[in-house]
């Protein structure tokens, strides 16, 4: 999947009532899959791509999506806090 790139970007309603960014990854063989990003991951991805608008993400590589998701989950790796 080395050549998978973002082919589409949508704002969507998540199951839990939050807005999320859903990027479509298009693979070299023509297959597609959807990846939902939370607010933190979306912001990291926008930053790493130098994008001002979500549509600017189209054409960017899947590795940046992976890194954004990892950055989002890393926020919680060393925290046991779940206070509400």
């Amino acid at each position: 999947m080395s050549g998978a790139v973002i082919s589409r970007v949508q704002l969507a309603a998540a199951h839990d009532g939050d807005a999320e960014l859903v990027v479509t990854l298009r693979y070299e063989n023509g297959g597609e899959s959807l990846v939902p990003l939370d607010e933190h991951a979306a912001r990291v991805l926008m930053g790493s791509c130098g994008a001002d608008d979500p549509d600017d993400l189209v054409g960017k590589g899947w590795g940046l999506v992976r890194d954004a998701l990892e950055a989002s989950s890393n926020r919680f790796m060393n925290s046991n806090s779940n206070a509400q």
């Binding site: 704002l11 309603a13 199951h15 009532g17 807005a19 607010e39 979306a42 979500p54």
Partner: peptide, 25 residues
Amino acid sequence: IDISFSFAVPSLLFMRMPTWYRIIR
């Protein structure tokens, strides 16, 4: 499915409006 938000927490609903998103983010 509904989307709910307040300006106390950043929401991607405003992502296509850069002035809004910059302020709330």
